Computed example of a mutant assay.
Amino acid sequence: MPAPAVPAEFAAARLHVVTGKGGVGKTTVASALALALAQTGKRVLLAEVEGRQGLSQTFDVPPLGTQEVRLVTHPGGGELWGLSVDAKAALLEYLQLFYKLGRAGSALEKVGAIDFATTIAPGVRDVLLIGKIYEAAGRPKGGRGSGGKGGGLHYDAVVLDAPPTGRAVRFLNVNAGVADVAKMGPIKSQADSITRMLRDPRTLVHMVTLLEEMPVQESLDGLRDLADVGLHLGAIIVNQVREPLLTPEQLTQLTGSAKTTKKDKALEDLVRDELTSAGLRPTNPMVKGLIREGRDHALRLDLQAEMAREIADAGPPVVELPALNGGMDDGGIAVLADELAEGLLGHDMDQTRQGGH
């Protein structure tokens, strides 16, 4: 069953939330998606909320703070800005905004009240973190207090590098998180506003995974949990997809079910001949080692194909990203951005570079 095509509405989403099991490349994919959006001429904010400074490492810039910093200016007019949201700073800003505490807020921080408040009530902490995303996503041109006189919004799109799958549902289901500690008042009101934003069809939650059993299973479970709390699913983004290094005939030779000593000997002779033709002097350990690696590669491809079928049957559109031999060095993030621009946003970057849009 082929995976569904990516809907055209994905390119018009206002907020892209990126989650996935730890270790699947979630931050890399979020960064590439934000860069892809900026390449289409948009002003984009890329935000993280876990304090790991993954974005600064990805773009090789100094650690991000609580102020928005421009990371990339694209020749086509797009801009990419970065932000690392901190719960403590968000709470101080919140107290100033709603209660005008001024210096009293700093005094609370000195006695540890801020750390206590953000630790004892994790639901409130999440509201404060997402509250910064909510403000940025809805900020009018001209900034706060401008009344939107310039028309439109400050950012065309926001990409949120969200917590991993195991915590994503609780993090995004903010109303449930504050239900026991805020029945009314500003926190409850802000949680309601954030919930409306997160459940708006223009907010999409994308799941990043690898073609391995544990990431795929956790991703499928996470997708069901996210849908159950009313969030709109975007795409399943499969990261680090390996291309076959051998021909189908070679893979069949390596994985044929009827393995015998005679067939193994024939395979060893074939590898030895190939190495000799290439000007090498094959030894028995070299030949056996290459066959062993070849079989491991073939088994890996079989597992990859099986996992790909499970993902395709899950329902959401699937976008595959290649495994990069050089990692993120030498423009790797730009390669992934181009793949996402075409596969997720329906934007042909080759045409853009030739003057089209």
Score class of each variant (00 low, 15 high):
residue 1 M to Y: 13
residue 14 R to D: 08
residue 15 L to G: 06
residue 16 H to E: 14
residue 25 G to P: 08
residue 30 A to Q: 07
residue 40 T to R: 13
residue 41 G to M: 00
residue 42 K to H: 05
residue 51 G to L: 05
residue 51 G to T: 02
residue 58 T to P: 13
residue 60 D to K: 04
residue 60 D to T: 02
residue 61 V to M: 10
residue 61 V to H: 10
residue 64 L to T: 00
residue 64 L to A: 04
residue 65 G to E: 00
residue 66 T to K: 14
residue 68 E to K: 10
residue 68 E to I: 01
residue 70 R to Y: 02
residue 80 L to Y: 02
residue 82 G to D: 00
residue 87 A to N: 04
residue 93 E to G: 15
residue 94 Y to W: 15
residue 106 S to L: 00
residue 109 E to H: 10
residue 109 E to R: 11
residue 122 P to E: 12
residue 123 G to I: 00
residue 123 G to R: 03
residue 124 V to K: 03
residue 128 L to Q: 03
residue 130 I to R: 00
residue 133 I to V: 14
residue 135 E to W: 10
residue 136 A to K: 09
residue 137 A to I: 00
residue 140 P to W: 03
residue 140 P to I: 09
residue 141 K to M: 12
residue 144 R to G: 12
residue 145 G to Q: 04
residue 147 G to T: 09
residue 150 G to Q: 06
residue 150 G to Y: 01
residue 156 D to E: 02
residue 158 V to A: 12
residue 161 D to N: 02
residue 163 P to D: 07
residue 163 P to L: 10
residue 165 T to N: 05
residue 168 A to V: 01
residue 176 A to W: 01
residue 179 A to V: 00
residue 186 P to A: 01
residue 195 T to P: 08
residue 196 R to D: 14
residue 205 V to E: 12
residue 211 L to N: 04
residue 212 E to C: 10
residue 219 S to L: 04
residue 228 D to E: 14
residue 228 D to R: 08
residue 233 L to G: 09
residue 243 E to V: 01
residue 245 L to T: 09
residue 251 L to Q: 04
residue 257 S to P: 09
residue 258 A to C: 03
residue 266 A to R: 03
residue 268 E to Q: 09
residue 268 E to T: 06
residue 272 R to E: 12
residue 273 D to K: 11
residue 273 D to P: 03
residue 275 L to Q: 09
residue 281 R to Y: 13
residue 284 N to G: 14
residue 292 R to L: 08
residue 295 R to N: 10
residue 296 D to T: 01
residue 300 R to T: 07
residue 304 Q to R: 11
residue 310 E to G: 09
residue 316 P to T: 04
residue 316 P to V: 03
residue 316 P to I: 03
residue 316 P to F: 07
residue 319 V to F: 06
residue 320 E to C: 11
residue 321 L to H: 08
residue 328 M to L: 12
residue 330 D to W: 05
residue 336 L to I: 07
residue 337 A to K: 01
residue 344 L to R: 02
